[in-house]
Computed example of a mutant assay.
Amino acid sequence: MENTGFNLENKRKLLYKRKRRRKIIFRLTLLFTLIFCVSIYFILNSKGLINRKVTLSPPKEKEFIVCIDPGHGDFDIGSKSPSGSLEKDIVLSISLKLGELLEKENIKVVYTRTNDSLPWLDDANDSLKERIKISEVFKSDLFISIHCNSNYDDTNAKGIETWYKLNDEESKDFAEDIQLSLSNLNYTDNRGVKTYAKKEDALAVLELNSANSALVELGFLSNSLDEKYLTLDSNQDKIANALKEGILRQLAVDN
Rank of each mutant, 00 (worst) to 15 (best):
E105T: 12
V66E: 01
S83Q: 05
N51G: 06
T114K: 15
W120N: 04
D126V: 09
S46F: 13
K108Y: 15
K80E: 13
P58M: 10
G71K: 00
F42V: 07
G71A: 10
I43P: 03
E103I: 03
N125F: 13
K108T: 15
R52C: 03
K108Q: 15
S117K: 15
K104I: 12
S57R: 14
V54S: 03
E87I: 05
K47E: 07
N45A: 12
S85I: 04
K88T: 02
S117H: 13
E61P: 08
K108P: 09
E103N: 08
L128P: 04
D76L: 08
F64Y: 14
S93V: 11
S81G: 07
I90M: 05
V54M: 08
G78S: 03
K62C: 03
N51L: 12
D76H: 05
I90R: 01
R52S: 11
F64G: 03
A124D: 08
I68Q: 00
P70D: 01
D69V: 05
I77T: 10
S83V: 10
K53N: 12
L118C: 09
S79V: 00
N51I: 10
N125C: 06
G84W: 04
K60I: 08
K47G: 12
S95D: 06
V54F: 13
L98H: 02
L118N: 01
E61N: 12
E61G: 14
N115P: 11
S85W: 03
G99F: 07
L121Y: 13
T55Q: 08
L98Q: 02
L96M: 13
L98A: 05
P58D: 09
V91L: 01
D123L: 09
D123I: 11
G78F: 04
V109C: 10
S93Q: 11
L49K: 14
L96Q: 04
P82L: 09
D74I: 03
G73R: 02
V66F: 08
S79T: 01
K97P: 03
K108D: 13
I65C: 05
G84E: 06
L98T: 02
N51A: 14
S79W: 00
S117W: 11
L102P: 00
G71N: 01
I90V: 15
K104R: 15
L98E: 01
D116T: 12
D116S: 13
L121P: 06
Y111P: 07
S93I: 11
K60C: 03
R113G: 09
I94T: 00
D69I: 06
E87Y: 01
G48E: 05
A124L: 14
K60E: 10
S93W: 05
E87P: 07
I107N: 00
L118Y: 06
S79K: 00
N106R: 15
I65K: 07
E100R: 13
V110Q: 06
E63A: 13
S81F: 01
L98V: 10
I65R: 05
I68A: 05
S93K: 09
L102F: 12
G48R: 06
I65G: 03
E63F: 01
C67W: 01
P119W: 13
S95F: 09
K53F: 10
L102S: 03
I77C: 02
S95E: 03
T55K: 14
T55P: 02
L118W: 08
D69H: 01
L49D: 05
G84R: 04
K88I: 00
N106I: 11
S85H: 11
K88G: 00
C67T: 15
T114A: 13
